[in-house]
């Protein structure tokens, strides 16, 4: 474990806590894409299939459970909780996210570490996570003004994988046989998708103005 990966995991955890705070405090999910939340739930379920069979550390197991439980709880909130469900704007959240699931799974069938059930689902979860934010970014562009907590949620979610890239560079330089091409390339693509969001987020922070993504 290195400082970049720990910072990345903590930033990821922070993004989830900010989203939970937003939903709990405002009893609303306005500006939040349910589809992105559903994709993330699939990402964690597909990636942590080895949760009970492969023990790495208490930290690793604990965080996997937190990520799975929180992503399912958020999807449950948006789908079932009467107050929150009412604020979900399905007319804005129209990204055809099942195409992202299909494309990622198809790619995982061709590009994986080993042709085994666990490795194909692991690669699938890596590819799916890279594009999971798309419905959310499209929703932000459509919904015009973005409330602070939602903006912070997306910012931390994008930053965590950026920190993981530093972690992969660090591990590549310090561990002899470290190669994680699938995770690295996918992580770079994932972080690049946030590029324009980061730009507008920085502008809004610098001008101390409301975050607004151009339509």
């Amino acid at each position: 474990m290195n400082i970049f990966r720990l910072a990345g995991d903590m930033t990821h955890l922070l993004s989830i806590l900010v989203l939970l705070l937003k939903i709990y405090a405002t009893k609303s999910c306005s500006g939040v894409s349910r589809k992105t939340q559903e994709l993330y739930a699939i990402v964690f379920l597909a990636r942590y299939l080895d949760l009970f069979t492969d023990f790495i550390s208490v930290y690793n197991t604990f965080m996997k459970i937190v990520f799975i439980a929180s992503s399912l709880a958020i999807v449950w909130c948006i789908r079932v909780h009467p107050m929150v469900k009412r604020s979900y704007d399905k007319d804005l959240d129209t990204f055809r996210h099942y195409l992202l699931v299909a494309a990622s799974f198809l790619l995982a069938l061709f590009l994986h570490e080993k042709f085994t059930f666990l490795e194909i689902f692991w690669a699938f979860s890596i590819y799916l996570e890279a594009v999971a934010i798309l419905p959310q970014l499209v929703l932000l562009q459509r919904s015009g003004n973005v409330d602070n907590l939602t903006g912070q949620y997306v910012f931390f979610l994008g930053a965590y994988r950026g920190l993981y890239i530093l972690n992969w560079i660090y591990r590549y330089l310090t561990e002899p046989r470290f190669t994680r091409w699938i995770a690295c390339v996918s992580g770079v693509v994932q972080t690049a998708l946030y590029a324009d969001f980061f730009y507008y987020y920085f502008i809004s922070w610098k001008n101390n103005s409301k975050l607004k993504l151009p339509a």
Binding site: M1, D54, S57, F67, E175
Partner: peptide
């Protein structure tokens, strides 16, 4: 942490 296990990252 058992480093080096294949998927030791989250």
């Amino acid at each position: 942490i058992v480093e080096g296990k294949y998927h030791d990252e989250l």
